[in-house]
Amino acid sequence: MTTSEVIRIWELSGVERLHLTTDTSVIFKFAVKPFTTEAETLIKLAGHGIPVVAVQAWAIRDHTLGLLTEDLGVPVRTATEEDAASMAALLHATPILGHLDTFDEEALTSLPERGLAALAALQRQGRFLNAWDINRALQRLAPCAKVLAAGAERPPFGLCHGELHPTSIHVGTNGTRLLDLAKAFNGPGLLDLATWFGTRAPAQPQHLNRLIHAYIHAGGHPGAASRRGGLPADRWALGWHRIWAAHWFLTHAAAGHHSRGTDDAHHTIIRRQLIAAVTLLTSSQSTG
């Protein structure tokens, strides 16, 4: 008999552990757009020798992904910055995957304008009607986005995890594996390193600078610490990661992937991300 154990359920996806016998289990994930590319990404990464969780079966039905992977069990410890640096160095050396979005210099430049377009679409739906703060931040960023995006394609540029958090690296008895690649994209590896710290706490460029140098030491591209868009690499990455994240919430809400019930919470998240981006990318401190 199969029994299930819910690990976590989100609005657009969920994870369960399926107990097939007394000593055998697998992980079942389900997801709707925009998270339906993970199985293909995992399979292609495994083919390139990247240590990822193994896919056992998958299918897409009615625009919903169902994915079975091996159950890696309980981690022996929490992943560290050194683990993140090593795994990112491996991942970013992987050839670009054609089924994923690419965020090159042109695409980054367009993010504030695309965010404004998504906000306008939401407001036509009667949503985000009081988002003057989001609008103002995007209007501040849009005119200088091209200058700020300069250097986006400077190495490291390649496959990025998209959510390189401590929970996305499983350190187990049989080695270290990457998990949760549903938001993977092609783009600047520095954005990936910036995701390690999340966006809830105030940005700490010195912490990312430390991770960048650990990444270089672990075999990452030696140019990772070089300036981009006239900014230090750490501030550039932290700022653009926040713009990318804000754009993600806005465009997917406008496309109907997030319900109206999430608008207030997402408004708070997007405002925090964009205010931080403005400070990181355009304040006098950024060019010091």
Rank of each mutant, 00 (worst) to 15 (best):
L129S: 09
G187R: 00
D62H: 11
R228F: 04
I27E: 01
R136S: 14
N174M: 07
K33T: 14
R17Q: 12
V278R: 05
E11H: 12
G126C: 11
A131G: 09
D133S: 15
N209G: 09
V147H: 15
I134E: 01
A46Y: 00
A85G: 09
T36F: 03
R242I: 04
T282F: 12
L91Q: 01
K183P: 00
D101K: 15
V53S: 04
L231Y: 03
T41K: 07
G14F: 02
H165S: 15
G256E: 12
Y215H: 11
T109E: 08
D83V: 04
A265V: 12
E153P: 00
T287S: 13
A107N: 06
P205Q: 11
T262R: 15
T251C: 07
I275Y: 00
V74M: 12
D71E: 07
R271L: 14
T195K: 07
L111K: 01
T173N: 07
F197N: 04
H217D: 14
Q139N: 15
A184P: 14
T102Y: 06
L164H: 03
P202N: 11
A152K: 03
H257E: 15
A184N: 05
L129K: 07
L91I: 08
G175V: 12
L280Q: 01
T102I: 12
H63D: 13
R127N: 11
T167W: 09
G189N: 04
W10D: 08
L111C: 03
R8N: 13
T80L: 13
R8C: 11
T2K: 10
L281A: 07
G126M: 05
A246C: 09
L97E: 05
I60G: 04
I169G: 02
I27C: 06
L211Y: 02
V171R: 06
D192T: 04
A254G: 03
T37Q: 09
I50C: 09
W240S: 08
T279W: 09
Q273L: 13
E70V: 13
Q206N: 14
T36R: 11
A203R: 00
A201Y: 07
T78K: 05
S4D: 11
A194V: 02
H165G: 12
L178P: 05
L129E: 11
A182T: 04
S226W: 06
A203H: 04
A201P: 01
G220L: 02
G198N: 07
R210K: 11
S13C: 13
A117I: 05
D133Q: 15
